[in-house]
Structures are given as structure tokens and as C-alpha cells.
């Protein structure tokens, strides 16, 4: 999280989830308002920027899209390092993809603690009739881990805008809280954890290998 000279808040958001649950589609829908069911498998992390205004604050979201297959996680936590928010996507017609979300929650909590805002998104609600992940289970789980739960359809453009907007609001809130505590601490020893979102987003970000 950095504040650019122009007063813009930069937030890094990462899309995580099993392969083929619709991470890229959600991103494309949000950024370009397009839906392409013929896009290629995502093989390497990529990102797109989105600028928006909330409560009179200029905000720049750097949204990172990642490869879904588990093997790619072995390359290291470069995708989600220094993230302010994470959208954990699953396919409501695929129970395994919901299990993956749980794994991701565990890993993120372990690596980033509570510094990251979590949102769980059940995608492909246009295929409601093929649903296998029970509604209550998903919502109660999200509640338990302190994440918000959203139902989305990138195809029908349902819940996508709301999801990102709410995530941004929460990240802003958390950032303001943190800066508040930061201010409160000025007279004391400043504890800088390399995982706090103090130096993140598109301008700094990751360094691999």
C-alpha cells in the first residue's frame, strides 16, 4: 500500500483459486466489461490496473490474475506477497474448487495474518442448476474465517462490480485503521513487518528468483 504523490491510494489485489473457476473472466468483466469463453488457460501471473473513486479518494487497484493449477504455487508466493486484498474464487458447480479456497485461506492466514482482506467468490451462478457447493456451507465458512462471501457470474455480469467495490472499501478501511495505529505508535518503537502492506502494489511489488 503506497500513497502516490497525487494522493492516490494503491492497493494490490490478487485473484486466487482452482483452475478454470473464472478468475480471468471475472477480471476481464470488471476491467473491460467483456466476457470471452474462448480465452486461453492462464499460465503466468498477469495484472491489470483499475482506477476508481471512493469517498472522494482516488484509488488504484492492481489486480493480479494467477494460474490456477496447484503446481504453479511452487514458484513461490510472489503473486500474493504484499497484497492488500485477495479474492478467492470457486466454481459453484465444482466442490473441489471450494476445497481449494479453504487451502488458500489457510495459506494466506499463515503467511499474511490478518493484514489482508479476504473475499470469497462463488462464480458461475449462471449455472445455478448445476450447483454442488451448498449455499449455507460456503457462507458459514466465509463467516468463520472472517471473509465476505459473494455470488458472481462473469458471464451474466452479476455481483462483479459489487464485489470489487466492497473489497476496495474494506481495504481502504483497513488501511486507514493501520495508519491510525501507525500514528498512535510514533512515539514508540516502530515494528515493521515485511508483510505489512506498507510497501506494495504496482510500483514496488515482487521480485522473483
Amino acid at each position: 500500500m503506497t500513497t502516490a504523490p497525487g494522493g492516490t491510494n494503491n492497493f494490490k489485489v490478487v485473484l486466487l483459486g482452482e483452475g478454470c473457476v473464472g478468475k480471468t473472466s471475472l477480471l476481464l468483466r470488471y476491467i473491460e466489461d467483456k466476457f470471452n469463453d474462448k480465452h486461453l488457460t492462464t499460465l503466468q501471473a498477469t495484472f491489470l490496473n483499475k482506477r476508481l473513486n471512493i469517498k472522494g479518494k482516488r484509488i488504484n487497484l492492481s489486480i493480479w490474475d494467477t494460474a490456477g493449477q496447484e503446481k504453479f504455487h511452487a514458484l513461490g508466493p510472489i503473486y500474493y506477497r504484499n497484497s492488500n486484498g485477495a479474492i478467492l474464487v470457486y466454481d459453484i458447480t465444482d466442490e473441489d474448487s471450494f476445497g481449494k479456497v479453504k487451502n488458500w485461506v489457510k495459506e494466506l492466514k499463515k503467511m499474511l495474518g490478518s493484514d489482508i482482506v479476504l473475499i470469497i467468490a462463488g462464480n458461475k451462478v449462471d449455472l445455478e442448476h448445476e450447483r454442488t457447493v451448498p449455499l449455507e456451507e460456503a457462507e458459514s465458512y466465509a463467516n468463520m474465517v472472517g471473509a465476505k462471501h459473494y455470488y458472481t457470474s462473469a458471464k451474466l455480469n452479476q455481483g462483479v462490480e459489487e464485489l470489487f467495490l466492497d473489497l476496495t472499501r474494506e481495504m481502504l478501511e483497513k488501511y486507514e485503521q493501520n495508519s491510525q495505529t501507525e500514528v498512535n505508535r510514533t512515539s514508540q518503537v516502530l515494528v515493521v513487518d515485511d508483510e505489512t502492506p506498507v510497501q506494495s502494489s504496482c510500483c514496488s511489488g515482487t521480485k522473483s528468483n
Partner: peptide
């Protein structure tokens, strides 16, 4: 901060 893996993987 543009890492090689971002374009070459």
C-alpha cells in the same frame, strides 16, 4: 519490479 516470470514463463 517486472520479474522475468511475469512474461517468460
Amino acid at each position: 519490479s517486472f520479474s522475468t516470470s511475469l512474461y517468460a514463463s
